[in-house]
Amino acid sequence: VKFVMDDSTTLADLLNLNLHNYEDEVRNIVDKSVKEMSMEKVLKELNTTWATMEFEHEKHPRTGITIIKTSEELIETLEDNQVQLQNMMTSKYIAHFLQEVSMWQKKLSTADQVISIYMEVQRTWSHLESIFIGSEDIRKQLPEDSRRFDGIDTDFKELVNQVERTTNVIESTNQPHLYERLEALQKELALCEKALAEYLETKRLAFPRFYFVSSADLLDILSNGNDPVT
């Protein structure tokens, strides 16, 4: 039965449909319409939210390059929206919106993963930069790892310039191969961290009193050539 409802539709027209004889079918149709309208509203809100969501930036003190800051609002919104999308995927009324919901799931999941590894790489780079580039003593003691870090430093700064050009969170984090590049940097940084930790351990073995000194203070002592004598 085809029925078109417009301004000329009357109550009598509705009664003539005998909808009371199809109570279950009508209830299912109404329920489906309500659920689909709710999904449509959520997806519109997602589009509006992420069209304007941008990273915050600040300058790195030593190098002056732009580093990313993530606000609490960004992280909370990202988490909440991913939960919303997951709930939508479990709905039996998802069919009409499946493609769009899947697209948003992929975009937000990628953003989540990239932000997580980016912040870790950025934090580790910032810590090691002042050591492997700012300390001549470390560069002399760990020449191979210093050269390794020089390569990391170049690659990271190139990546920063690329990310900086796109401030929108979704566009920035969903750039092709970005996660893989960050993953490679993370592995290289881990090797530098390991070499540095082993170097500090040799100093502590030689001078046990260094076990009572933090790694940061020990690096400062060594960089200034203040090795104690036995």
Rank of each mutant, 00 (worst) to 15 (best):
C192E: 06
M5R: 10
E40L: 04
S223L: 01
Q122E: 11
V229G: 06
E45R: 03
T49L: 00
K187D: 13
N18M: 09
I68H: 07
I65H: 15
R147G: 06
P228F: 12
N47Y: 01
D150H: 01
L185E: 13
I152L: 03
K35N: 07
D7E: 15
N28P: 02
L108Y: 00
G225L: 07
R62P: 03
V101H: 00
K107I: 02
I138K: 07
I75P: 01
D80Y: 05
H57I: 08
T166C: 03
A95R: 12
L15T: 12
Y211A: 08
I94C: 05
I67R: 14
W125I: 09
E198Q: 13
E73M: 08
M5I: 15
S215N: 15
Q82F: 00
Q141F: 06
H127F: 08
D137I: 15
L74E: 03
I68W: 09
N16G: 15
L219P: 05
R165N: 02
R123Y: 07
L196D: 10
L98P: 03
E136R: 13
K41S: 13
P176Y: 10
S102D: 02
N161S: 10
T167F: 04
V1A: 14
I75C: 03
L128Q: 09
L17D: 14
E129W: 05
L43G: 01
I115L: 12
A197M: 09
S172L: 01
N226T: 08
N18Y: 11
S130L: 06
L191I: 15
L218F: 04
F3N: 10
I75R: 05
V160T: 13
V160H: 06
V160M: 09
T173F: 01
A197N: 11
F132W: 05
V1G: 14
V169E: 00
A197I: 07
I138N: 02
E79F: 13
L200S: 12
R181K: 15
I29N: 07
E198R: 13
P208R: 04
V26C: 11
S130E: 14
T166H: 03
D217F: 10
E25R: 10
V4N: 14
V229T: 14
V26F: 09
L205M: 07
V163N: 02
Y118E: 07
M89C: 04
V34M: 05
D145T: 08
T124L: 08
P61H: 08
D31E: 15
S223I: 06
N224F: 04
L85F: 00
T154N: 09
T202D: 11
T230F: 13
M39Q: 06
S71E: 09
L98E: 09
P176G: 11
D155I: 06
L205V: 15
E158G: 03
Y199Q: 08
E164H: 04
E23F: 13
N161T: 07
T10D: 12
L17F: 05
D80Q: 07
N81V: 01
G64R: 10
S91D: 02
M37K: 11
K106M: 08
S38N: 05
I65E: 15
S91T: 01
V4S: 14
A197Q: 10
E188P: 04
L191G: 03
T110S: 02
R209G: 04
A195G: 07
M119C: 14
A197V: 06
F156E: 08
Y22T: 09
I115N: 10
